[in-house]
Amino acid sequence: MTPSAPSITTPLIDIREVRKEYDDGPPALVDLSLTVAAGEALAVLGPSGSGKSTLLNLIAGLDRPTGGTVTVDGVRVDRLGETASARYRRERIGMVFQFFNLLDDLTVTDNVLLPAQLVGAGRLQARARAAELLEHLGIARHAQAYPGRLSGGERQRVAVARALMNRPALLLADEPTGALDTASGAEVRELINELNDEGQTILLVTHDLALAGACATRTVELVDGRIARDTPGTRRTRGGSAVAR
């Protein structure tokens, strides 16, 4: 893994001619190329089976393409072995899931601390960072609570805090509001906007047009593994504090 600092001219995500085939059925992605600049909030839209999750998995290093290249933050993700891709995930990306994926037997703080502990970060620094994130995301009062006691919106905030713990270059969100009620969904949308305003590059996978409209600075629509539409979003970044980075 040879990281290089992204610049204005270097896209944070550079996907070229990516193809993904499974054992049976049609290919999930067909010669897909896509670049995402640092600071963008890209929403990937599409119906079920269009290849959204496959694309997310390839960018996260959870899966490998059948062909083509995936480069994120200067790292050729498609070439990484299991250990290197684990290091890549904990150092360069943060992930937020539809169903939060918090560990129920760990407190909110311990959940948030996990990524830092996995990279072997200093204890005091990690705790300070976790406290800062919890405070910033408005869930500091739940620091010692267990996830099972929180509302869906609060759980997703915890998941976002965990994803940001190691100051990732890229935040991947897979249907982040899919399991939330309307009010909680609105809270999370607002949070995503705040993060992007602070300079956090975000890639959202969703079929929620409202979420994409509210949060994305650019929208890509996938149909049958191909990009059917690539359009600028309606939202514009505002800039702000640098908690996310």
């Binding site: 996260a60 684990a86 995930r89 904990r90 150092e91 994926n101 560990l103 996990l114 990524p115 996995l118």
Partner: peptide
């Protein structure tokens, strides 16, 4: 196994 998946998604290496 699902918790394992979460930990791996967060960057837990195979050795870990």
């Amino acid at each position: 196994v699902h918790d394992l998946g979460v930990l791996k998604a967060l960057g837990m290496a195979p050795r870990q």
